[in-house]
Protein backbone atom coordinates (compact mmCIF):
# COMPACT_ATOMS: atom_id res chain seq x y z
CA UNK A 1 0.00 0.00 0.00
CA UNK A 2 2.99 2.28 -0.26
CA UNK A 3 2.75 2.91 -4.01
CA UNK A 4 0.60 6.02 -3.80
CA UNK A 5 -0.80 6.72 -7.26
CA UNK A 6 -3.22 9.48 -6.26
CA UNK A 7 -2.80 11.57 -3.14
CA UNK A 8 -5.27 14.00 -1.62
CA UNK A 9 -3.38 16.26 0.76
CA UNK A 10 -5.30 18.44 3.18
CA UNK A 11 -8.13 18.83 0.69
CA UNK A 12 -10.98 21.06 1.77
CA UNK A 13 -13.97 21.78 -0.42
CA UNK A 14 -16.51 24.46 0.39
CA UNK A 15 -19.59 25.46 -1.57
CA UNK A 16 -20.27 28.95 -0.31
CA UNK A 17 -20.35 28.68 3.45
CA UNK A 18 -21.06 24.97 3.40
CA UNK A 19 -18.01 22.80 4.01
CA UNK A 20 -18.39 19.44 2.27
CA UNK A 21 -14.91 18.07 2.85
CA UNK A 22 -12.68 19.27 5.62
CA UNK A 23 -8.95 18.85 5.20
CA UNK A 24 -8.96 15.25 4.06
CA UNK A 25 -5.90 13.16 3.31
CA UNK A 26 -6.36 10.13 1.14
CA UNK A 27 -3.90 7.90 -0.65
CA UNK A 28 -5.04 5.73 -3.53
CA UNK A 29 -2.65 2.87 -4.31
CA UNK A 30 -1.79 1.82 -7.87
CA UNK A 31 -3.36 -1.33 -9.40
CA UNK A 32 -5.65 -1.77 -6.39
CA UNK A 33 -9.35 -1.28 -5.70
CA UNK A 34 -10.05 1.54 -3.28
CA UNK A 35 -13.56 1.94 -1.92
CA UNK A 36 -14.79 5.20 -0.46
CA UNK A 37 -17.72 4.47 1.77
CA UNK A 38 -20.07 6.78 3.54
CA UNK A 39 -23.66 7.88 3.61
CA UNK A 40 -25.09 9.74 0.66
CA UNK A 41 -24.41 13.44 0.96
CA UNK A 42 -21.21 12.88 2.91
CA UNK A 43 -19.09 14.10 -0.02
CA UNK A 44 -18.02 10.85 -1.69
CA UNK A 45 -18.99 12.12 -5.13
CA UNK A 46 -17.27 15.43 -4.46
CA UNK A 47 -14.03 13.54 -3.87
CA UNK A 48 -14.49 11.76 -7.21
CA UNK A 49 -15.29 15.03 -8.97
CA UNK A 50 -12.11 16.54 -7.62
CA UNK A 51 -10.01 13.53 -8.59
CA UNK A 52 -11.55 13.76 -12.05
CA UNK A 53 -10.46 17.46 -12.11
CA UNK A 54 -14.05 18.68 -12.44
CA UNK A 55 -13.88 20.60 -9.15
CA UNK A 56 -10.89 22.43 -7.81
CA UNK A 57 -10.41 22.01 -4.05
CA UNK A 58 -10.86 25.14 -1.94
CA UNK A 59 -7.54 24.30 -0.35
CA UNK A 60 -5.12 21.40 -0.43
CA UNK A 61 -3.62 19.45 -3.29
CA UNK A 62 -4.49 16.42 -5.38
CA UNK A 63 -1.47 14.67 -6.85
CA UNK A 64 -1.27 12.02 -9.54
CA UNK A 65 2.18 10.47 -9.79
CA UNK A 66 3.21 13.29 -7.43
CA UNK A 67 2.07 15.93 -9.94
CA UNK A 68 -0.74 18.40 -9.32
CA UNK A 69 -3.66 17.16 -11.44
CA UNK A 70 -4.81 20.71 -12.21
CA UNK A 71 -1.51 21.55 -13.86
CA UNK A 72 -2.03 18.99 -16.61
CA UNK A 73 -5.75 18.33 -16.88
CA UNK A 74 -5.62 17.07 -20.49
CA UNK A 75 -3.16 14.35 -19.52
CA UNK A 76 -5.20 13.49 -16.43
CA UNK A 77 -8.29 13.11 -18.58
CA UNK A 78 -6.46 10.66 -20.83
CA UNK A 79 -5.35 8.59 -17.82
CA UNK A 80 -8.69 8.51 -16.01
CA UNK A 81 -11.91 6.78 -16.89
CA UNK A 82 -15.09 7.62 -15.05
CA UNK A 83 -18.47 5.97 -14.75
CA UNK A 84 -21.12 7.91 -12.88
CA UNK A 85 -24.20 6.73 -11.10
CA UNK A 86 -26.77 7.67 -13.72
CA UNK A 87 -24.58 6.67 -16.66
CA UNK A 88 -22.99 9.07 -19.10
CA UNK A 89 -23.56 8.18 -22.74
CA UNK A 90 -25.89 9.10 -25.57
CA UNK A 91 -29.26 7.37 -25.30
CA UNK A 92 -29.88 7.81 -29.03
CA UNK A 93 -26.65 6.13 -30.09
CA UNK A 94 -26.14 2.40 -30.22
CA UNK A 95 -23.74 0.62 -27.89
CA UNK A 96 -21.07 0.48 -30.58
CA UNK A 97 -21.62 4.08 -31.72
CA UNK A 98 -21.21 5.29 -28.14
CA UNK A 99 -17.97 3.39 -27.68
CA UNK A 100 -16.53 4.51 -31.02
CA UNK A 101 -17.55 8.11 -30.36
CA UNK A 102 -15.91 8.31 -26.94
CA UNK A 103 -12.87 6.43 -28.22
CA UNK A 104 -12.43 9.06 -30.94
CA UNK A 105 -12.77 11.86 -28.38
CA UNK A 106 -9.98 10.18 -26.40
CA UNK A 107 -7.89 10.30 -29.59
CA UNK A 108 -7.68 6.52 -29.91
CA UNK A 109 -6.62 5.79 -33.49
CA UNK A 110 -9.17 4.01 -35.66
CA UNK A 111 -6.81 1.05 -36.11
CA UNK A 112 -6.68 0.47 -32.38
CA UNK A 113 -10.19 1.61 -31.61
CA UNK A 114 -12.34 -0.80 -33.60
CA UNK A 115 -10.75 -4.03 -32.30
CA UNK A 116 -10.78 -2.53 -28.82
CA UNK A 117 -14.48 -1.71 -29.05
CA UNK A 118 -15.21 -5.28 -30.16
CA UNK A 119 -13.11 -6.60 -27.28
CA UNK A 120 -14.74 -4.30 -24.76
CA UNK A 121 -18.22 -5.30 -25.83
CA UNK A 122 -17.27 -8.91 -25.27
CA UNK A 123 -15.56 -8.06 -22.01
CA UNK A 124 -18.63 -6.35 -20.53
CA UNK A 125 -21.07 -8.77 -22.17
CA UNK A 126 -22.68 -6.43 -24.67
CA UNK A 127 -21.60 -8.07 -27.94
CA UNK A 128 -25.13 -9.08 -28.85
CA UNK A 129 -26.41 -5.60 -28.13
CA UNK A 130 -23.89 -3.65 -30.20
CA UNK A 131 -26.56 -2.23 -32.53
CA UNK A 132 -29.12 -1.60 -29.83
CA UNK A 133 -29.82 2.02 -28.94
CA UNK A 134 -28.59 2.78 -25.45
CA UNK A 135 -32.05 3.93 -24.41
CA UNK A 136 -33.40 0.46 -25.13
CA UNK A 137 -30.89 -1.32 -22.89
CA UNK A 138 -31.79 -2.75 -19.51
CA UNK A 139 -30.46 -1.06 -16.38
CA UNK A 140 -27.67 -3.58 -15.93
CA UNK A 141 -26.64 -3.31 -19.56
CA UNK A 142 -26.58 0.47 -19.24
CA UNK A 143 -24.22 0.16 -16.25
CA UNK A 144 -21.97 -2.11 -18.27
CA UNK A 145 -22.07 0.23 -21.27
CA UNK A 146 -21.12 3.11 -18.98
CA UNK A 147 -18.17 1.15 -17.61
CA UNK A 148 -17.17 0.15 -21.17
CA UNK A 149 -17.28 3.83 -22.21
CA UNK A 150 -15.01 4.63 -19.27
CA UNK A 151 -12.57 1.93 -20.40
CA UNK A 152 -12.51 2.67 -24.12
CA UNK A 153 -9.29 4.69 -23.94
CA UNK A 154 -7.63 2.09 -21.73
CA UNK A 155 -7.31 4.35 -18.68
CA UNK A 156 -4.82 3.86 -15.91
CA UNK A 157 -7.41 4.74 -13.28
CA UNK A 158 -11.10 3.87 -13.35
CA UNK A 159 -13.36 5.97 -11.14
CA UNK A 160 -16.78 4.45 -10.43
CA UNK A 161 -19.47 6.33 -8.61
CA UNK A 162 -21.84 3.92 -6.89
CA UNK A 163 -21.68 1.38 -9.73
CA UNK A 164 -24.22 -0.94 -8.10
CA UNK A 165 -26.78 1.63 -6.98
CA UNK A 166 -30.37 0.74 -7.91
CA UNK A 167 -29.37 -2.71 -9.19
CA UNK A 168 -30.92 -5.98 -8.12
CA UNK A 169 -28.64 -8.49 -6.35
CA UNK A 170 -27.87 -10.42 -9.53
CA UNK A 171 -26.80 -7.30 -11.42
CA UNK A 172 -24.82 -6.08 -8.41
CA UNK A 173 -23.03 -9.38 -8.35
CA UNK A 174 -22.27 -9.18 -12.07
CA UNK A 175 -20.99 -5.62 -11.87
CA UNK A 176 -18.75 -6.39 -8.93
CA UNK A 177 -17.38 -9.37 -10.84
CA UNK A 178 -16.72 -7.07 -13.75
CA UNK A 179 -14.93 -4.53 -11.54
CA UNK A 180 -12.71 -7.25 -10.17
CA UNK A 181 -12.01 -8.45 -13.72
CA UNK A 182 -11.03 -4.93 -14.83
CA UNK A 183 -8.70 -4.60 -11.88
CA UNK A 184 -7.11 -7.92 -12.72
CA UNK A 185 -5.97 -6.29 -16.00
CA UNK A 186 -3.96 -3.76 -14.00
CA UNK A 187 -6.41 -0.85 -13.82
CA UNK A 188 -6.49 1.09 -10.57
CA UNK A 189 -10.06 1.42 -9.40
CA UNK A 190 -11.57 4.01 -7.08
CA UNK A 191 -15.24 3.60 -6.33
CA UNK A 192 -17.84 4.86 -3.94
CA UNK A 193 -20.53 2.76 -2.36
CA UNK A 194 -22.94 2.65 0.52
CA UNK A 195 -22.87 -1.13 0.57
CA UNK A 196 -20.40 -2.34 3.14
CA UNK A 197 -20.58 -5.95 1.92
CA UNK A 198 -19.44 -4.82 -1.55
CA UNK A 199 -16.52 -2.89 -0.17
CA UNK A 200 -15.66 -5.75 2.14
CA UNK A 201 -15.57 -8.23 -0.71
CA UNK A 202 -13.61 -6.51 -3.44
CA UNK A 203 -11.72 -3.53 -2.00
CA UNK A 204 -8.03 -3.70 -1.28
CA UNK A 205 -8.42 -0.45 0.63
CA UNK A 206 -11.41 1.12 2.30
CA UNK A 207 -11.70 4.82 3.13
CA UNK A 208 -14.49 5.76 5.51
CA UNK A 209 -15.93 9.23 5.08
CA UNK A 210 -17.78 10.63 8.02
CA UNK A 211 -18.64 14.20 8.99
CA UNK A 212 -16.61 15.78 6.15
CA UNK A 213 -13.49 13.81 7.09
CA UNK A 214 -11.80 10.54 6.15
CA UNK A 215 -11.79 8.84 9.51
CA UNK A 216 -10.20 5.57 8.43
CA UNK A 217 -8.29 4.36 5.37
CA UNK A 218 -6.97 0.86 5.57
CA UNK A 219 -7.45 -2.55 4.06
CA UNK A 220 -10.71 -4.19 5.01
CA UNK A 221 -8.90 -6.92 6.96
CA UNK A 222 -6.84 -4.40 8.96
CA UNK A 223 -9.95 -2.42 9.81
CA UNK A 224 -11.73 -5.55 10.95
CA UNK A 225 -8.85 -6.61 13.14
CA UNK A 226 -8.42 -3.04 14.45
CA UNK A 227 -12.03 -2.89 15.53
CA UNK A 228 -12.16 -6.58 16.34
CA UNK A 229 -15.09 -7.27 14.06
CA UNK A 230 -15.96 -9.96 11.51
CA UNK A 231 -17.22 -7.52 8.94
CA UNK A 232 -17.40 -3.82 8.04
CA UNK A 233 -20.86 -3.50 9.57
CA UNK A 234 -19.29 -4.32 12.89
CA UNK A 235 -16.47 -1.85 12.21
CA UNK A 236 -19.00 0.92 11.60
CA UNK A 237 -21.00 0.08 14.69
CA UNK A 238 -17.87 0.36 16.78
CA UNK A 239 -16.80 3.60 15.14
CA UNK A 240 -20.20 5.04 16.00
CA UNK A 241 -20.10 3.82 19.53
CA UNK A 242 -16.67 5.45 19.86
CA UNK A 243 -17.95 8.72 18.48
CA UNK A 244 -20.83 8.51 20.90
CA UNK A 245 -24.58 8.64 20.55
CA UNK A 246 -24.53 12.43 20.61
CA UNK A 247 -22.70 12.53 17.32
CA UNK A 248 -25.19 10.17 15.78
CA UNK A 249 -28.12 12.27 17.02
CA UNK A 250 -26.46 15.33 15.54
CA UNK A 251 -26.21 13.46 12.26
CA UNK A 252 -29.93 12.73 12.34
CA UNK A 253 -30.69 16.42 12.60
CA UNK A 254 -28.03 17.40 10.14
CA UNK A 255 -28.74 14.85 7.42
CA UNK A 256 -32.30 13.74 6.87
CA UNK A 257 -31.09 10.71 4.94
CA UNK A 258 -30.40 8.96 8.21
CA UNK A 259 -34.07 9.12 9.04
CA UNK A 260 -34.77 6.78 6.12
CA UNK A 261 -31.93 4.31 6.10
CA UNK A 262 -31.32 2.34 2.93
CA UNK A 263 -32.72 -1.19 2.74
CA UNK A 264 -29.34 -2.23 1.39
CA UNK A 265 -27.58 -2.18 4.71
CA UNK A 266 -27.32 1.59 5.05
CA UNK A 267 -29.05 1.53 8.41
CA UNK A 268 -26.67 -1.07 9.68
CA UNK A 269 -23.75 0.87 8.22
CA UNK A 270 -24.52 3.89 10.34
CA UNK A 271 -25.86 1.97 13.34
CA UNK A 272 -29.40 3.18 12.71
CA UNK A 273 -30.85 -0.12 13.90
CA UNK A 274 -29.02 -0.93 17.07
CA UNK A 275 -31.02 -4.07 17.68
CA UNK A 276 -29.74 -5.61 14.46
CA UNK A 277 -26.64 -7.72 14.95
CA UNK A 278 -23.99 -8.49 12.38
CA UNK A 279 -25.58 -11.83 11.60
CA UNK A 280 -28.50 -10.01 9.93
CA UNK A 281 -26.31 -8.53 7.23
CA UNK A 282 -24.40 -11.73 6.72
CA UNK A 283 -27.69 -13.53 6.24
CA UNK A 284 -28.80 -10.88 3.74
CA UNK A 285 -25.54 -11.16 1.85
CA UNK A 286 -25.79 -14.91 1.70
CA UNK A 287 -29.37 -14.67 0.52
CA UNK A 288 -28.36 -12.22 -2.20
CA UNK A 289 -25.66 -14.56 -3.45
CA UNK A 290 -28.07 -17.51 -3.50
CA UNK A 291 -30.59 -15.37 -5.37
CA UNK A 292 -27.91 -14.26 -7.80
CA UNK A 293 -26.63 -17.73 -8.56
CA UNK A 294 -30.16 -19.18 -8.92
CA UNK A 295 -31.26 -16.37 -11.20
CA UNK A 296 -28.12 -16.70 -13.23
CA UNK A 297 -28.67 -20.40 -13.79
CA UNK A 298 -32.28 -19.82 -14.77
CA UNK A 299 -31.26 -17.07 -17.15
CA UNK A 300 -28.57 -19.19 -18.79
CA UNK A 301 -31.14 -21.92 -19.36
CA UNK A 302 -33.29 -19.36 -21.23
CA UNK A 303 -30.21 -18.25 -23.23
CA UNK A 304 -30.35 -14.58 -22.05
CA UNK A 305 -27.40 -12.21 -22.19
CA UNK A 306 -27.67 -10.97 -18.67
Amino acid sequence: MDDKLIQLKGVTKRFGKNTVLDSIDLDIPEDKITGIIGASGEGKSTILKMIASFYKPTSGKILYFNRDIFKDTMNIKRSFGLAIEGGSFYENLTVKENLVYFGRLYHVSKKVLFPRVEGLMKFVGLSRAEDVLAKNLSLGMKKRLDIACALVHNPHVLILDEPTADLDPLLRFQIMKLVKKINSHGTTIVFTTQLLSEADKICDKVAILYNEKIIEQESSSKLKSKYKSNDLDGVFRKIFSKKGRKTYQESIHKKTKFEEPSHEGGAAMFGGDEKKDSNDSITREELEEVFASKKNKKHKKKGGTE
Binding site: R78, I84, S88, F89, Y90, E91, L105, A150
Partner: peptide, 13 residues
Amino acid sequence: KTQAYFRNFMTPT
Protein backbone atom coordinates in the same frame (compact mmCIF):
# COMPACT_ATOMS: atom_id res chain seq x y z
CA LYS B 1 -28.75 18.30 -20.93
CA THR B 2 -27.51 15.01 -22.30
CA GLN B 3 -26.49 12.25 -19.98
CA ALA B 4 -23.18 12.13 -21.83
CA TYR B 5 -22.30 15.68 -20.78
CA PHE B 6 -19.97 14.60 -18.03
CA ARG B 7 -18.15 12.01 -20.11
CA ASN B 8 -17.72 14.60 -22.86
CA PHE B 9 -16.19 16.87 -20.23
CA MET B 10 -13.90 14.09 -19.08
CA THR B 11 -12.47 13.55 -22.57
CA PRO B 12 -9.37 15.54 -23.51
CA THR B 13 -11.40 17.58 -25.98
